[in-house]
Design a protein around this nucleic acid. Sequence first.
DNA 1: GCGCTAATTGCAATATTATTGCATTTAGCC
DNA 2: GGCTAAATGCAATAATATTGCAATTAGCGC
Lengths: 147, 147
Amino acid sequence: MIQDSIRILQARGYKITQPRKQVLEVLQGAQKPLSPYDIQGLLQKQGKYVNHVTIYRILDLFCSLNLTHRVLSSGGFVKCAIESKEGCHRFMVCSRCGALQEFADEELCRDENRFAQNLGFHTEYHLSESSGLCANCHKKSEGPEGV
Amino acid sequence: MIQDSIRILQARGYKITQPRKQVLEVLQGAQKPLSPYDIQGLLQKQGKYVNHVTIYRILDLFCSLNLTHRVLSSGGFVKCAIESKEGCHRFMVCSRCGALQEFADEELCRDENRFAQNLGFHTEYHLSESSGLCANCHKKSEGPEGV
DNA sequence: GCGCTAATTGCAATATTATTGCATTTAGCC
DNA sequence: GGCTAAATGCAATAATATTGCAATTAGCGC
């Protein structure tokens, strides 16, 4: 919920402004990662003007607080869907419909850390994005009479 | 080695041109990911002019053949260091010195696939970049008398 | 080595994405 | 309501990326 994000912003001493609320709303309603200019365009359709520089700055802030994430494989931003979860947040992106699922798993982090340790590397943060078919698209790809 | 890449290009019917060899050489000598314009700049220092559009196209080709990879967290390109390895190629980027280590591990892929399956997702490709301290920088951070 | 042709590169224009400094506005406080 | 730091808008510009078309070149047969 957007309210959670707003509470976090307040708790850290950041002001709750119109542009910040509007960016949160747009991201909340999005089905896929949005670029800063996507966000600006969607807001404009609602008659709300926000300068793109402002959107960049808002996204920088949100990402630093983990309220949003930047999805590197598509270059867009998404609202964090699992704010409470421990472990690095990971994405699965459907290569057909673009749908994005976020998850976190501490065991995967441990597996990666262990592997890195063997190479002398001390991991602080994991970036992980998988592409493949989501449940829906996979079902369709098996034909209408599927399983 | 560059020769390996050249052999792969030839085997697939691509011509061995000056720009392609030069881009390979620059990437081979690099200690960190390079942007297309970085590459152009380095070549220019050697008195070799290659148009940036050409470099973009060469990198597209190389990446499609897995001769190079795009490192998303830094936005640059690196020559593939483990061309023969099975499994998705992964990176560890040192957050202090920028050094990059490439590796692949089929078990990590299986772990990720298993997890995705549980969420109904059928993975085709993994993108994985970790950041942390490389062996060298970690040693230094423990002080000169460190282990 | 010479010419031929498809593949490749260069060029020019333009689109997209991102950043900076400074003036203006506004949220949250009294 | 007025005050002030924080946030936004604006304008300029930088950095990154793409397109269509003309010019060049690698690799082929001879």
